[in-house]
């Protein structure tokens, strides 16, 4: 399939990237090549084949509903952010 400039821009938007024109061209080429390669799968007949999302034989793994002390509490976590105020993380205004 053909990847156009606007496709690249759409994928960049989904990925939250701002790309320079150079990047748009380079990534465009790279993505074309990669998509061409992975499209080889079309050859493979997968009719009546169930998909596999995990290679883990177990199911119904869940924990009991019990409050436990955590490895890191509020202060240790908020300390990691650039800016906090009133025990909350400060971010630029949302448009």
């Amino acid at each position: 399939m053909d990847i156009k400039r606007e496709d690249i821009l759409h994928l960049a938007e989904l990925s939250e990237f701002t790309l320079s024109d150079a990047e748009i061209d380079d990534l465009g080429e790279d993505l074309k090549g990669i998509i061409k390669y992975i499209s080889q799968l079309d050859e493979l007949n997968t009719d009546q084949v169930e998909p596999t999302y995990q290679v883990f034989e177990m199911d119904n793994v869940w924990r009991e509903d019990k409050i436990l002390p955590q490895e890191a509490e509020r202060e240790m976590l908020l300390e990691l952010s650039k800016e906090d105020q009133d025990h909350q993380i400060k971010v630029p205004k949302v448009l």
Binding site: A12, L27, D30, L31, L41
Partner: peptide, 30 residues
């Protein structure tokens, strides 16, 4: 990183999921 993130968003985006992600999940079974 950017290549892989964009490829990932491509194979998951509406219209391509079945042709790519789901197809690959079936190939995985084989």
């Amino acid at each position: 990183n950017k290549r892989r993130i964009m490829i990932g968003n491509f194979v998951l985006s509406s219209g391509f999921y079945d042709a790519y992600f789901l197809k690959a999940a079936k190939a995985r079974t084989l």
